[in-house]
Computed example of a mutant assay.
Amino acid sequence: MNRILALGHLMINRDSHAAKQLELLKKALCADEIIPYLGPDLLRLRYEEPPVPHTPQAVAAAFNARAPAPSKIRTNMWSVAQFIEQRRHRRTLQAWMAEIFAGPVAPTVFHAWLATLPLSLIVDSWYDGAMRAALIDTGRTDVVEIQGVTRAHAIGDVWTKTYDLSGTELQPDSAATTVLYTPHGSIKPAANFLIADSDYVEALTEIDIQTPIPRAVKERRTKRGFFFFGCRFDDQMLRTYARQVIKRSSGPHFAAIDSATLTKNERRFLAANAITVIDMPVGEAAAQLVGTDV
């Protein structure tokens, strides 16, 4: 079937339309006209079984192996993390997250390709640090990473921290050609994690007026849309953050997802935010973009 289907207000590009749209998106990425928004499904491009969890449910399972949570919250990563923080202290939660994501994660070919492009902004929505590693591998010195940080022990109005690729903390708004934005934190360089429900209480209170979003992100998204790659939106927290990161950007937005696997909530989210689906498995889409097997 070689046509574009509209399911409600959800636009889906299939077959030759999907391939053609990917070619246009490749040109847009190379010209810094669209922002890649990366998710943990990218890890499956390199690993049949990734060395770190690649879904919120897998993180919850790793927590439960250390301290079983009540059955009603057992599969919810954020609630299980909150349970651990309340019962075992924040230091324990922090240490366990560092253990869970300690395994070295090599960048995929897709990460490596993105790292060579003159992109103004890359958003990485998972904790594994693969995109950071790919940027380090290029030897670039014109990149800063802005990470979301917990306010559990914060003094003052601190929502993020900024680092160069060597791990040195920088002043906010440090100049850079490329900003890597990790809104939920990352294992590298300092094991900053937004993970427990309590981490998000103030952020979700303020995020509608965009206070937690860094100025560099607000500025660099203004004339661009977003391309979601390796992302799923089957959890309310992931949908909320994605919605706020793309807020006030100019669009258009796209997502490479196998449409047959979409949940009702994902369909509603994609339609409500005018995100066009490129109906293609992530591996196939990555291979077309990079121009080689991934």
Rank of each mutant, 00 (worst) to 15 (best):
P36R: 15
P36E: 14
L38W: 09
L38G: 10
G39L: 05
P40L: 13
D41T: 06
D41Y: 13
L42K: 12
L42P: 10
L42D: 13
L42A: 12
L45H: 05
L45R: 06
R46C: 04
R46V: 04
Y47I: 04
E49N: 14
P50D: 04
P50H: 06
P50G: 03
P51W: 09
P51C: 10
P51A: 15
V52W: 04
V52R: 08
V52H: 03
P53I: 11
H54D: 09
H54V: 04
T55D: 01
T55M: 03
T55G: 02
V59S: 03
A60H: 02
A61L: 02
A62F: 03
F63L: 13
N64G: 03
N64W: 02
N64Y: 01
A65V: 01
A65N: 13
A65F: 06
P68M: 02
A69G: 03
P70C: 01
S71I: 04
K72L: 09
T75C: 08
M77C: 14
W78K: 04
S79F: 05
A81L: 09
A81T: 10
A81N: 12
F83M: 07
I84C: 06
E85M: 02
E85W: 00
E85P: 00
Q86D: 13
T92I: 12
T92Y: 13
W96M: 11
M97C: 10
E99L: 05
E99D: 14
E99A: 08
E99Q: 14
I100E: 09
F101E: 04
F101V: 06
G103F: 03
G103Y: 02
P104V: 12
P104A: 08
V105G: 02
V105F: 01
A106N: 11
A106T: 14
A106Q: 15
A106D: 12
A106E: 15
P107Y: 03
T108N: 09
H111C: 00
W113Y: 14
L114M: 12
L114W: 07
A115K: 02
A115Y: 02
S120M: 11
S120G: 15
L121E: 06
L121I: 06
V123A: 14
V123K: 11
W126I: 00
Y127P: 06
G129P: 09
A130T: 05
A130Q: 05
M131T: 12
M131F: 03
M131S: 11
A134G: 09
A134D: 13
L135T: 02
I136K: 14
D137S: 11
D137T: 08
G139V: 04
R140K: 00
R140D: 00
R140M: 01
T141Q: 15
D142N: 11
V143P: 06
V144F: 04
E145L: 10
I146D: 09
G148R: 02
R151A: 10
I155L: 07
G156T: 07
D157H: 10
D157F: 07
V158E: 14
T160S: 10
T162Q: 07
T162E: 10
T162D: 02
T162G: 05
Y163T: 08
